[in-house]
């Protein structure tokens, strides 16, 4: 709406308060808020009866066997959490190391190392734009045979999905970390270098200890992205509705579970359990977002207050 707002003369805008751009903005914001509220209401309204009518095979039991009236999604909850956490355990440290490597070139390095840095930085940016299904598809052909040979089983398992999810959340983590860490490092240059420190020293001694909030918010958002992803677990995790017990065994996440059941059922108890799964996912993601929001706000305030 920018062009139209600039076309309206300034005094007209200020005086009447009926600036068209502003009312369109308000309307759009209102619709968005209303949409979210309705979504929450609907999910809760459908999930609540399932929650209150606790029967033997209800959603909080352990076994998923729709043929025998067992609709437990405990295994899926565990699957989601375990898979997201394991992807984070692989992806986050890797992202942090990659970020440090990108920002801490050693002086006097060859032109090759320098161009390698810019190529990798570019690739990380591009990775955010690759559709998830491409990762899944490539992994089915390239990663699963490898996993099958090394840890056994079918290759469609916890390990495959965790590795691929780690790759998926990597750009998110690297971009978040670099947005938080690079300006802090920049402030210490060139004074820190003049004392004989390398950029890596500065990162290690002065940037990372001060950037706990950036580190934590990248962790939280990485987790949010990992727990919400559907296609990678659906394509790679094997989808056996069982408690995750080994990295070579299959597991099923809440997201994959919802995708699978919605494509097969249109009603009944199996379908009802989906609302439970949806409500849980919504809850987890809302908590993650709130957490990230709080971190963002407080770190911004800290930055404002802390510097001269």
């Amino acid at each position: 709406m920018k062009p139209s707002s600039s076309a309206v003369p300034a005094e007209e805008r200020g005086a009447s308060g009926r600036d068209p751009a502003r009312s369109v903005l308000r309307f759009a914001a209102g619709i968005a808020v209303l949409g979210i509220l309705l979504l929450f209401l609907m999910i809760i309204a459908f999930a609540l009866p399932v929650f209150t009518e606790q029967s033997a095979g209800g959603p909080f039991s352990r076994i998923w066997a729709p043929g025998q009236g067992q609709f437990g999604i405990q295994a899926m909850i565990a699957g989601s959490l375990v898979l997201a956490l394991s992807a984070l355990c692989i992806g986050w440290p890797f992202g942090l190391v990659l970020c440090c490597w990108l920002f801490c070139p050693v002086n006097g390095q060859s032109g090759f190392a320098r161009s390698a840095r810019s190529i990798v930085g570019f690739l990380v940016r591009i990775m955010t734009a690759i559709p998830t299904v491409v990762y899944g598809f490539a992994a089915v052909f390239l990663l699963t045979p490898l996993v099958r040979e090394t840890v056994g089983g079918t290759g469609f398992c916890w390990l495959s999905a965790a590795l691929m999810l780690a790759v998926l959340i990597l750009p998110t983590i690297v971009l978040l970390l670099s947005a938080g860490l690079a300006p802090r490092l920049e402030r210490l240059l060139p004074g820190g270098l003049a004392l004989g420190f390398t950029r890596m020293d500065l990162m290690w001694f002065f940037v990372l200890p001060e950037a706990k909030k950036t580190l934590f918010s990248s962790l939280v958002l990485g987790f949010g992205r990992a727990v919400g992803d559907t296609l990678i677990p659906l394509m790679l995790a094997g989808n056996a509705p069982q408690m995750p017990y080994a990295c070579s065994a299959g597991l099923r996440t809440l997201t994959a579970h919802m995708a699978m059941v919605t494509s097969n059922e249109v009603g009944g108890a199996a379908y009802n359990s989906l609302f439970m799964a949806g409500a849980l996912l919504l809850l987890i993601n809302a908590l993650v977002s709130l957490c990230a929001c709080r971190l963002e706000c407080s770190s911004r305030q800290e930055r404002k207050g802390g510097r001269r």
Binding site: G191, F206, P209, E210
Partner: peptide
């Protein structure tokens, strides 16, 4: 080299510690 050639800058650049 930089340890042996000390340098002080225009505006004080203390570390945030």
């Amino acid at each position: 080299l930089r340890r042996l050639v000390g340098m002080v800058f225009q505006s004080p650049n203390v570390f945030p510690v």
